[in-house]
Structures are given as structure tokens and as C-alpha cells.
Design a protein around this nucleic acid. Sequence first.
DNA 1: TGCCAGGGCGCCG
DNA 2: CGGCGCCATGGC
Length: 297
Amino acid sequence: MTENYKAPFVTDEYEKGGIPCVIVSGCGSFSLHKTFDCGQAFRFDPCGDENTFSGVAFGKKITFSDKGEGKLEIIGSTREEYEKIWKSYLSLDVDYDEIDRFIVDAMPCERDRNEMTAAVNSGHGIRILRQEPFETLISFIVSQNNNIPRIKKIISALCEKYGENGAFPTAKALVEAGEDGIFELKTGFRAGYIYDAARKVLDGEVVLDDVAACDDYDKCTEMLCSIKGVGPKVSSCVLLFGFNKTEAFPIDVWMKRSLENHYPNGFDVERLGKYAGIAQQYMFYHERWNNSESTKK
DNA sequence: TGCCAGGGCGCCG
DNA sequence: CGGCGCCATGGC
């Protein structure tokens, strides 16, 4: 199906003040800006303009810069690290153009195809990141009944206070911080949830590697939902962004609006199969940016 | 001041 | 099961 897809590749490798850099060419429709501004990652911020995003992932400080014409500069990565970490992290090994066509074709009627085309065009270039499971789990627990700027603030505080050298805190570090230590960082009623998640991961009551290895989506949901504060929405986000289970279809307030406003005849997620999560991300982005009083930042 | 934010829990019928 | 109040916090 995607055998004709040509993945981006490293075309240059150099140093900037002792920091290793690479240029990745052939990134096609990839949009750095949309990918880091669609509410899936909370540790990246624009640097100067919207063509450069800087943040931390896998414990590494990293900067991505869109140089135009399908060229992506990665500051803080060698060629080997690109191949091992960032290519997968950014999902640059996936043929999204093919998926976009599939998503539109999956709609049952012309009016729904038109609606979905609008969402796909709006979100065109977004890539589902492959983020670290534990970080994603805690981040989306923090996200509940919260807004994106404040989620970012809380996560940043967690990393500063309980992480090693800017990395996201380990389960052990959060358990040692205790519920009180977590509450101190303005996490509010979520402090107990975060603590429960960290404790269960540390004790092995929830094994994230088992979730990653499990092909039964409902079983994955069941494992994550055994954590206090993790329900259908949080677990689906964690499975989508932290485990690359792209059949996940998180429904939050924006998605409810999207479904109510644009798909009055109902919406059959099953038709989207394993690409439901990607369609969801387009719909979310479209609804949030085009059909709201654009209150963000 | 009141409402809302990438919700879920506990309780009630 | 489905509905509803509540949970901290900050921005508007």
C-alpha cells in the first residue's frame, strides 16, 4: 500500500558550536508548526518564529527548524540519533498522504467526505508523534478539565522539580515526591491521580511494556483505566500519542463540537479503522482553529 | 463574577 | 447503565 513511499533522509551533518546537527530532506507535507501546535505534546515551544520548535524528549534537549522545501534541521542530533529516535518520534517514516486519502474515502457519503476534506486540508502536515509512554500518561492525566497553556506550565514544573537534568520525572521520582509534593505544583485534584499512576507503574500493577505489546485495544484501555483518574478520554490520548495505537479516537469537548456541528447524521469511527486517531487529530485541529474564537496561547 | 479548559469520580435514580 | 455535582486553578 505504501511501498512507493520515500522516507525523508539525512542529507547533511555538521556542528553548531559543538552541538551536532543534521538536515533531513524530503519531508514532503510535514508541518513542524502544526505538529507541535495541535495539543499532543506539551514540552515544545516556538523559538523566535513558528518555523522553529525547541523542547525536550527522551531526556534530550532538541530543536527542530523548518527550512522550507521539505528540509528539516535538527539541532542536537547526530545522523545515528535521527535514525534511531527522531525519525520515529516525528513519524517521518509514515506515508501520510496515503492515509489522508484513505480517511476521506472512508466517509460514507458526499457531504461527510466534504466535511472531512475540510478537516484534512486544515490539519494537513500534522504527524502523530511517538512520545514516551510514561510521560504521555502523566501529561494527559494533567490535561483533564484543564487548558493547554496551564497543562504545559504544570508539566514544566514537574520536570524542573522532579526530573533529572530537564528530563521528565520517572515513576520512582514522583512516588518519592508524594501526593503532597505533586500537589504543591498546582496540580489540584489531579495530584492523587498522578501519584496513583506513578505508584502503579513503579509497583508493576500497570506494566507499560505490556500495553505497548498488546494488540487488543480494549485490553489496553482496561489496563490504563485501572489507574485512578484515567478514563476513556485520557486513555485514548495516551494510547494514541504514547503507544502509537492510531485506532484510538479521543473525544473531548472540541471533538464533541466537531461531531455535533459537522456530522449530524452520525459518525461511524469503525470505518476509519486504524487511522481513526489521525482523522481525529485533523478534526480537533480544524475545530479548534477554524470554528472557535481562536483563544489560544 | 461566572464560565471554561484535550475529564473522571462518586453517588444517585 | 445515565445524569449530575464536584474536584483546583487560572485566564478571559
